[in-house]
Simulated assay, not measured.
Amino acid sequence: MYTLIELQKKLLPDMLSVMQKRFQILRSIHFMEPVGRRTLAQVLGFSERVLRSEVEFLNEQKLITIKTNGMSVSEQGLSVLEGLSGMMREISGINEMEEKLKELLNLQEVVIVPGDSDETPWVKQELGRACAKRMKKRLVGKNTIAVAGGSTMAAVADMISADFIGDSDTVFVPARGGIGEDVKNEANSVCAKMAENTGAKHRVLYVPDQVSKEVYQSFIKEPIIKEVLHLIKNADMVLHGIGDANVMAKRRNTKEEDMKLITNGHAVGEAFGYYFNEAGQVVHKVPTVGLQLQDLQKIKHVIAVAGGSSKAKAIKACMKSATKSTVLITDEGAATKMIGY
């Protein structure tokens, strides 16, 4: 038996394409509001003429409001977005892609959000929102959540609010030290933002991400650092992003001899200071203070968040070393490339 969506695809394909286009426009207005028509046309890649007619239709249906400072989605429009979201995932084939990617990567769950964060900046917010939703489902009783740094983790922090932790007793800890990038994206800052947004507690780990073996041994003897490291390694949940190997190596100001190992090893992805080639093999490891790859084996919930078609190889490579309990949250752009559509 055909589902209703399958029947509509066969008999009314034009109607479905129009619905998808209007849903995309409405969703984009919601994430960018208030937004002008010209800006929206540029983001979506539509001509202003095409967008004008669609905007007029949405306005006539009272799904948006138009003011001098731009367009916004009305309450009725929000209801339509919420009501159609599940159907649009089925129409676009995202549900099927999730199952294929879960099987391909041998993971507990794969969540795909529509769009490509390389092309549309607000898709990263959707990745953050999807992560927050999965986190909330897994919070029971007392929880320690270890969080890595990065712009994607910062987007997750922006998407969680006071109702996130509910009755649970939650503390956020940085998964590792800083790497000298933008301070607001370092793990300590992301943890502080999550704690601030939820009313939870957090701990800090003010040590460099990369240290020599001698300095590392000195650090871990300090009582405060030792206590935080114990919390990190015994976390109930870990949140982390995935980086492009070359981008991360340059950001770390990697030494020339180490850069050769990364380049000659054909590394494509990075997570927790480990550089992976396409086969998922570790070709270089940065000495870091904090969570190590082997620590993930005993952590109940691991959520990896990364998107953008440019990161497809990096995500696929890093996920080959992931635990079966890992949940991957990615976007349509990366998922399409990983599956090979």
Rank of each mutant, 00 (worst) to 15 (best):
T323E: 15
F31S: 06
D118Q: 09
L40I: 06
V238K: 02
G290E: 11
G128C: 10
K137F: 10
T144R: 06
S72D: 12
K193W: 02
R134A: 13
R252S: 15
K193G: 00
G178S: 13
P114F: 10
S117Y: 00
A249P: 00
D236A: 13
L12G: 00
R89L: 14
L101P: 03
G243Y: 02
L58R: 02
K142E: 15
I262Q: 05
V228G: 10
A335Y: 01
Q61M: 11
M194G: 08
I232L: 09
K324E: 15
R251Y: 06
G141D: 14
T144W: 04
K67Y: 05
K226Q: 12
V211S: 05
V80Q: 05
K201I: 08
Q76R: 06
Y341D: 14
Q125V: 10
P208R: 06
D295V: 08
S72Y: 04
V35R: 03
Y2F: 14
G45S: 07
K201T: 08
I220A: 07
D169E: 15
F164P: 01
T3P: 03
A245H: 05
R22W: 08
G265T: 06
G243H: 02
S309T: 10
S74M: 05
D169Y: 12
G308K: 00
A245V: 09
M338N: 11
H202N: 09
L239W: 03
L293V: 10
N234S: 14
I64P: 00
G77C: 02
G70Y: 00
H30Y: 14
K337P: 04
S79T: 02
H240Y: 07
A312M: 03
V190I: 13
S309W: 02
K213I: 15
V204N: 04
A200R: 00
M1A: 13
L16S: 04
D182H: 07
K233A: 11
I112F: 10
A304M: 08
